[in-house]
Simulated scan of single mutants.
Amino acid sequence: MTKDKNNEVPITGLYDDEGKIFNEAQGENLDATDEVGEEEATEVSLSQEELHALCLESVCPECDVFKEAEGIRLRALADAENVKKRLFRENEEMKKYAGESVLADLLPVLDNLDLALAHTGNLDDACKNFVIGVDMTRKLFLDAVKGHGLVVVPVAVGNDFDPEVHEAVGTVQEPELADNQIAQIIQGGYLLKGRLIRPAKVMVNKA
């Protein structure tokens, strides 16, 4: 019996879409070609930013791209260091003056004690102990707030007027005082760790 060659099926062969026979080795080559094509497609799909980043990672130190990247890195480090120092200063200042608002609210208490002591003239002996008690209370109060950095602004009649720590509320003419000297103290001023929280209110002499 005669064999029909058209009906023969190769044992190890395969047909492609056109009916042509190709072996496994050819199939492997096609697969390899497909993989290479995919890799090439992946490389081509990289954006300009990604290519630039890859270049920055592998360029030589003398390349302009490397110098540009190094400059950007150094500027970023400098900016980060400046921010760190600024935050540290702000944190230290916040801790230093954390009690300013509380101490400022206590100033009227000191003002009332000063006012009470300013009107102690011509008192009889029965009131002297009361005045001594008020004076001691004021001193204890000042010692307590001094422990938190609050001190009285230096001021006295006859001192030169200092606009940095004094506030002029009016002028007077006192022959015994020179021009621009303090003639009267209206209200005491206070400093908190070197920072003025309230100037001393005074009358200034104008010759």
Rank of each mutant, 00 (worst) to 15 (best):
P61W: 07
T42M: 03
N129I: 07
K206M: 14
T42G: 01
L103V: 10
S58A: 11
I186W: 05
L142Y: 00
K139P: 02
D162H: 05
T33D: 13
L46N: 02
I182E: 05
L140H: 08
Q173S: 15
Q26V: 13
M94R: 12
S45M: 06
E43R: 03
I182L: 08
D114L: 00
S58Q: 12
G189D: 14
A144M: 05
N29V: 06
D135I: 04
T171Y: 11
A76L: 04
N91T: 13
Y97L: 09
I185K: 11
V102Y: 08
D17P: 01
C63P: 01
D4R: 13
A53I: 03
A76F: 02
E164D: 13
M1P: 10
L74G: 01
A78M: 02
V59H: 09
A32T: 10
F66H: 12
A69D: 08
G19Y: 13
Y97I: 09
N91K: 13
V109N: 05
L56E: 12
C127V: 01
G99A: 07
A178F: 07
L191Y: 12
K128Q: 02
N91C: 03
Y190W: 15
L107F: 03
L192E: 11
C63F: 06
A80G: 02
G194I: 15
I186Y: 04
K5P: 13
D114N: 12
N23L: 12
V65H: 13
D162V: 09
H119Q: 09
I185H: 08
H52Q: 09
T42A: 06
P10C: 10
M94C: 04
Q26C: 03
G13H: 07
L51V: 03
E38H: 08
N29W: 10
N180V: 04
A78K: 10
G170M: 00
C63I: 00
E38Q: 13
I186R: 11
E43W: 00
S101G: 00
V172G: 03
L192C: 09
A41D: 11
H166T: 10
E8S: 05
K20G: 03
T2A: 14
I21K: 13
G19K: 14
D135H: 09
M94T: 14
G13W: 06
A76E: 05
D16K: 10
K3N: 14
R89L: 06
T171C: 06
L115V: 01
E39P: 00
A183D: 01
A183K: 06
D125L: 02
G19C: 12
F66D: 05
L123I: 08
N129V: 07
G133M: 08
K95W: 06
A104T: 15
A200C: 15
V169A: 08
T33Y: 11
V145Q: 03
F141K: 03
A144Y: 01
P199W: 10
F130L: 07
